[in-house]
């Protein structure tokens, strides 16, 4: 992957000035390349990585395994597209293995998600079965530790 993209994936707030210094390229080039990434859709957006466990809000996330019947035309795409249109669905992946689609769904509480599964997801033609797992706690998200390990300090000056 391009180094600029890697750096932005690590920290999207990095300023063009610093990026230019780190990559040893002119600042204008940094700006143009970011603009190109945004225009081409390679960069889809920027958002904060939030530790929800630390917030006093009601929210649950469920991971749902879904088995579906692929359609003759379009395979999984049509049904995946249909499911992903629901606001509740945060991510959706086509998987290899014992099920076909993997969904990350969030709602205010268990009932909320249960309602979505029973009333919306399961009733879509082509959905054969679902298995819902609720997340209990987040340890790491998008490569970020939610509770960083107690750092070990090196000597402050060494040869």
């Amino acid at each position: 992957m391009d180094e600029l993209l890697k750096l932005l994936k690590k920290n999207a707030l990095e300023t063009p000035e610093n990026l230019s210094k780190m990559l040893d390229i002119p600042i204008d080039e940094v700006k143009t390349r970011i603009a190109e990434y945004e225009k081409s859709g390679i960069i889809r957006g920027y958002r904060a990585v939030v530790n929800h466990d630390q917030l006093d809000i009601r929210q649950v996330t469920a991971v749902i395994e879904v088995k579906v019947t692929p359609e003759r035309e379009g395979g999984f795409n049509h049904i995946a597209d249909r499911i992903s249109k629901f606001d509740e669905v945060e991510s959706l992946y086509l998987m290899s293995g014992t099920f076909d689609l993997l969904l990350f769904v969030s709602g205010r509480d268990l009932k909320d998600v249960a309602f979505f599964v029973a009333e919306k997801l399961a009733t879509i033609p082509g959905v054969l079965s679902t298995a819902t797992h609720f997340m209990l706690r987040t340890y790491k998200d998008h490569g970020v530790m939610m509770e960083p390990e107690e750092g070990y300090e090196r000597l402050k000056v060494s040869p």
Binding site: R154, L155, K156, V157, S158, P159
Partner: peptide, 11 residues
């Protein structure tokens, strides 16, 4: 609270 650039080993 020193920021150390005095360290001769990897971080």
């Amino acid at each position: 609270d020193v920021i150390s650039l005095g360290i001769g080993e990897p971080d």
